[in-house]
Computed example of a mutant assay.
Amino acid sequence: MQDFTILPQGLPDPADDGAAAHLEGRTLPIVQLASTAGGTVDLGSLDGLTVLYCYPMTGRPGTALPEGWDDIPGARGCTPQACAFRDHFAELRALGVRSVFGISTQTTAYQREAAARLHLPFPLLSDSALELQEMLDLPVMDVAGDVLLKRLTMVARDGVIETVFYPVFPPDRNAGDVIDHLRRRSGSG
């Protein structure tokens, strides 16, 4: 069985294609995304400091990844990225982050399995209807006919996107990169 928590060696680095350059300074739209915690989350009503990390899809034990998945720059690593945000969750909260959300185009039912299996202390949000993707023109990839979000992380304050990490590589270091950024901004590191 494949261990999705470990990144294989030799993954291709994703290039910065400029597809996220327009996001800093944008306001998070009023959009209701289904949450693995139940109900929905309106991104437009978030206040305080929020971290939103977008990812293509989490793997599921016993289910094969799409053909050639490891060869797609930036595709592999959703589980290690989620686990890193889980492992650094308390540190993020101590730095003033009020909310952390993972966002993908997978259904809430699919995400719920991953959130439970990985013991995530924050919800995953489903953009399966591509509403957020269209409103913010988030970068995507087409894999076997499925539209998946490219990996990026947004740090927003009171609903305004202040910082965007794109491309994110390697994904298991993304949470640490966000923490380093927040420390520099606060002058505590």
Rank of each mutant, 00 (worst) to 15 (best):
A115D: 00
L43A: 00
H119P: 04
A21W: 04
Y55G: 10
T63L: 15
P121R: 10
E113V: 14
E131V: 12
L130N: 09
G176W: 13
D142V: 07
P170K: 07
R185M: 12
I179C: 00
T36E: 05
S188N: 08
P12A: 05
V100D: 04
A37I: 04
N174S: 13
P73M: 13
L95G: 04
P56H: 00
L46M: 09
L23K: 02
Q133C: 14
N174Y: 11
L65P: 02
R117S: 12
I72D: 02
D16C: 10
M135G: 07
S188M: 09
E67A: 13
Q81F: 03
L182F: 08
S35D: 02
A15M: 03
Y166V: 01
G18I: 13
G62M: 05
I72T: 13
G18K: 13
A37M: 03
L43H: 12
L125C: 08
G74Q: 08
G48M: 06
P56Y: 08
V140W: 02
L118E: 02
G145F: 03
R93Y: 13
P170Y: 07
L148A: 02
G102H: 01
Q9T: 15
A37L: 02
Y110W: 05
Q133G: 07
G39E: 01
A37G: 14
R26G: 10
D127E: 00
P8L: 06
S186D: 13
L136V: 09
P123Y: 01
R98E: 12
M141Y: 07
T63M: 15
H119E: 14
L46H: 05
D3P: 04
L152D: 12
Q106R: 07
D87N: 01
F4P: 10
V168N: 05
V143P: 00
A15Y: 05
P66V: 14
E113Q: 12
A115R: 04
F122C: 13
D180F: 05
A37Y: 04
C54S: 10
L148K: 06
L92Q: 06
P29F: 07
G39K: 00
L28N: 08
R98S: 11
D70R: 14
L95Q: 05
I103G: 02
A156L: 07
G159Y: 11
M154C: 15
T36Q: 09
R98A: 14
D87T: 11
A156T: 12
E91D: 15
A156D: 01
L136R: 00
A116C: 06
V31I: 04
N174M: 03
T36G: 06
T153I: 12
L149N: 08
G39Q: 08
G48Y: 08
P171Q: 13
R184L: 15
V155Y: 10
